[in-house]
Design a protein around this nucleic acid. Sequence first.
DNA 1: CACCCTCGAGTTCA
DNA 2: CTCGAGGGTG
Length: 762
Amino acid sequence: MADTTSDAEESSTAEPVAETYSSDELSVARTEAQEVTERILGLREAYYERDEVLVDDAEYDTLIRRLETLEHSFPELQSQDSPTQSVGGRVAALFDPVEHAERMLSLDNVFSIDEFSAWATKVYRDAGRTVDFLCELKIDGLAINLRYENGLLTSAATRGDGRVGEDVTENVLLIDSIPKQLLGSGHPPIVEVRGEVFIPVAAFRELNAEQTAAGEKVFANPRNAAAGSLRQKAEGKNADKLAAMNRRLSKLRMLVHGIGAWQNPPLSTQSATYGLLASWGLPTSTHFTVVPSAEEATAFIEYFGEHRDSVEHEIDGIVIKVDDLALHDELGATSRAPRWAIAFKYPPEQVNTRLVDIVVSVGRTGRATPYAVMEPVRVAGSVVRQATLHNQDVVKAKGVLIGDTIVLRKAGDVIPEVLGPVVELRDGTEREFVMPVVCPECGTELRAMKEGDIDMRCPNARSCPAQVRGRVEHVGSRGGLDIEALGEVSAAALTQPEVPETPPLVTEAGLFALTLDELLPIEVIVRDAESGLPKIESDGTERRRTPFRRNPSAAEKKEGLTGPQPSSAAHTLLDELEKAKTKPLWRMLVSLNIRHVGPVAARALADYFGSLDAIRAATQQELAAVDGVGPIIADSLIEWFTIDWHEDIVTEWAAAGVQFSTPGHPGPGAAAATEGPLTGLTVVATGSLDGYTREGAQEAIITAGGKAASSVSKKTDFVAAGPGAGSKLAKAEELGIRILDAAQFRILVEHGPAALPPPATQ
DNA sequence: CACCCTCGAGTTCA
DNA sequence: CTCGAGGGTG
């Protein structure tokens, strides 16, 4: 990034380009330059007047550089008021400019441990000796320069372009954590102190709640909130507004991390500087450490990469500085950044990308779900190319158009979520998403199943390929019959193979009657995971795969087996289907794909009735009498049995040997609640518990007579949490629910709560 | 009528 | 694992 500035400088002093372009080319370039200029001005306006950060710095720089290139190639396009004349020049019109006594440099960035190591190697080489590194958190806030004259705070300014910033003294005077007068007496007559103004995450939430209550807009993130709060103007505000403004400013905090404009300070290390700053009464971070090697700096980076949430403010990286001040002078600086420090940037949690298309997928229930197809982009540590948009109302509410640049984040650090469009970057070619009228998989007209339903569904439940595939996959899923060999790929191969023309499974009815002979001929087309397009062989044909057969091995040929042999996947699938036939009744119920009947409702029904026949014979009232089953689920069950091809599933599965009853069940009636050590208790298991699978832990709770809930609430008695536990653990802590580790969980399910050691007191 | 809970779907990772 | 939607319960 340090190169950016020098490139720009070089381009302005380089030989003028020979004027060989035509007037046509010039007018094309003029149009583009105007467009780019407008975009940049739009972004600046958003940034300065509405405190909105619409694009990241890299994208902003790209626009600036494009304009520079154009102006360089076509000198006619240069002008005094071009945005390129104030590069980095995010200097505001609203605040008075302040010149810093010493240039505020920014830091070069590295984005990986490798890049960091390369930087460290260069430092070692240039230093020619061992180096201590000071590691500190890089706060995601605003860089501020405080100027103290004779110990009194006289001015506070943003960084601006590094040389000239905006005067925000009035507002900074209202931030409590910034001393207006320095303590002690050792400070020089004029000293500049650099630091970061930010809003702690908790205060940010408070602020947004207040904004909502007051009907004002909420801030997208703490950084924006800090910037917005610091850049408020008092002028023209009435008493109420002024009070609100002061309240916002009071939430801001500052931490200082450097000194500017002080010749020959009586110090030898950066860490000693922090001690001195603290002795003057300035707030310094407690999260810093000095380490003797780059390896240990790496460990610091990795530690906080995993514990970003443990800090009260948002951090976007780690700053590593050479501790020895003498070395700072030896290493020097480029025009933009010092060589003795580097910023390690963590992967951003919010990024911009292009919305290439909005496509509709159909699930096993026939629901048509629009999802965003995006330019692949790295966010929070993984590459994302798709994100669900739920339904057409959500698409509308988010206001995104196909072709938009959009803001993307990972909700809960896992699930990609489209936040909205960057309206300023539209160029007029974007188009609105229109919900298709027909099912993208089978062409049947989509419709809302109920009055006022937002969801559109494909009514062709029996033969829509997407629905059949989805249902077959659901049978094999963990909540269903848990058939390892029957996942997404097998389900597709069985229901929509390229060969044979008629698939082995037209509906799931034939699943348990599958034979090797039916599996062998199956051929599927290999598709690219990214584009979804078939992969093409060198001879121009689509690449095919035969998941259930393979060529005979040399040994088999010797024994005279010349024809294709069944693959191990084929054997596994048939074996597992055989075993599945006698699995518990509730798994069968889940596998029938009855609306609203998931593992929980299915268990309740199976325990109560003991057989599918008993369920079929029951009236709505009888079904609804089951704990956990209400009139809607009851209706859904009755409705399900009225459809012929549903009955065919039961008939054919039964004919193939599927057991639809619980052996030894006495028949319909309230099953006696399992008596055990956990009777009456609700337990939630989360994270990986040593000695238990996710399923196993649930099973253990149920066999002990307890209720295995899936989310933590007031009614939860215990939460068993292992490593990797996420929000449920946090929720449990919030509600003050006792949290158990794997060993304690084992005691609980085997011997009951009384056997637990007394809770550790905090 | 509040809650609390389950269902269903999409998504990525080890 | 998280969300929205919508069902179930007190």
